[in-house]
Design a protein around this nucleic acid. Structure first.
Length: 305
DNA sequence: CTCGATCCCTGGACGC
DNA sequence: TGCGTCCAGGGATCGA
């Protein structure tokens, strides 16, 4: 499942292999994961891939303005634009020789000027593909939070400690931090010894800072190891990552904690499977709502008016 | 604001 | 061998 390190790995591979190439033509299979399939067919041909970037879990192919040879007069395509790609759970984006047989779940083919095809393959089609002009792209990107690799101590603390949601939910929330998914959320919470159900507001400044540091360290190491391949993640060269060997919590239910030998547990937190050590990551006191009865409820000053 | 539920989708694991 | 069932999971969306 591609999270920040996996997407970064793919982006680096694509940068090496398709940067500077021009897209000659587009062919589509199933299109239910593409926001506007016609826009891809209409606007991609003739454009050069000027840059490949990562934004959170998104990949961004920055495209040149349309080819200048267009003599139809009204060149609405002149401005640069981007192809925004999210790999979802099972998406793969990689160049391959045009002669290579098609996979069953390959749904986008971009023919390049060197004869290869960039292919998008995604069995579950949880991915997303969108063609966007600069203005629309900029607008779309404002919805996302800080880059976990870049975020400083003050901003991280502010984003986390002000929130009443569970820390696990906050780490997964792309408008808080962009790029963290289930694996790296659990791994960083394990390393920081923080229970996933703790509330953001309950984290001590020191805990928040520890979390930020271990998160960054884990993400960096995972990138070096080309990400985690759990089921079917492959990078742009078709290679699996190696970081799954370093997982300390994720996927380890019933196995022993590397620190204290306690059995790792799994629980649903924020709607997601969450793996943690019940000893190293002590559970917060249960949030109570109904326990507090009569006496205390009555003397708050009226809130409004 | 935060929560849970629901939907999207298919492959893989598991039970019989 | 071949069913059926359940689950995984990011994100959008909706109602509580």
């Amino acid at each position: 499942m591609p999270e920040l390190p996996e997407v970064e790995t793919v982006v680096r591979g694509l940068r090496r292999s398709i940067l500077g190439r021009t897209i000659l033509s587009v062919r589509l299979g199933k299109t239910d994961f593409i926001d506007d399939p016609v826009a891809l067919e209409m606007h991609l041909p003739g454009r050069r891939i000027e840059a490949v970037e990562r934004f959170g879990k998104f990949m961004l192919l920055r495209l040149s303005g349309a080819a200048s040879g267009d003599r139809r007069g009204e060149n609405v395509d002149a401005a640069p634009a981007s192809l925004l790609v999210h790999l979802g759970m099972t998406g793969q984006l990689a160049p391959s020789p045009a002669a290579q047989p098609y996979g069953k779940h390959t749904h986008v083919y971009l023919t390049l000027d060197d004869g290869r095809e960039v292919r998008y393959t995604d069995p579950r089609r949880f991915g997303r593909m969108t063609y966007l002009t600069e203005a629309l792209l900029a607008e779309k990107l404002t919805a996302f939070g800080a880059d976990p690799l870049e975020v400083g101590a003050a901003e991280f603390a502010a984003r986390i400690r002000s929130r009443h949601a569970r820390i696990k939910a906050l780490l997964l929330d792309q408008s808080v931090l962009r790029g963290v998914g289930n694996i790296y959320a659990d791994e960083s919470l394990w390393r920081a010894k923080i229970h996933p159900a703790r509330l953001g507001t309950s984290l001590k400044p020191k805990e928040a800072e520890t979390l930020r540091k271990v998160l960054q360290d884990i993400l960096k190491k995972a990138i070096v190891m080309r990400g985690s391949s759990i089921s079917d993640f492959l990078d742009a060269d078709g290679e699996p990552g190696e970081y799954q060997r370093r997982h300390r919590a994720y996927g380890r239910e019933g196995e022993r904690c590397y620190r204290c030998r306690t059995l790792i547990r799994r629980a649903i937190v924020a709607g997601r499977s969450s793996y943690f050590c019940p000893k190293c990551q002590p559970a917060p006191r249960r949030r109570k709502r109904s326990t507090r009865r009569a006496g205390s409820a009555r003397r708050r000053a009226p809130r409004n008016a």
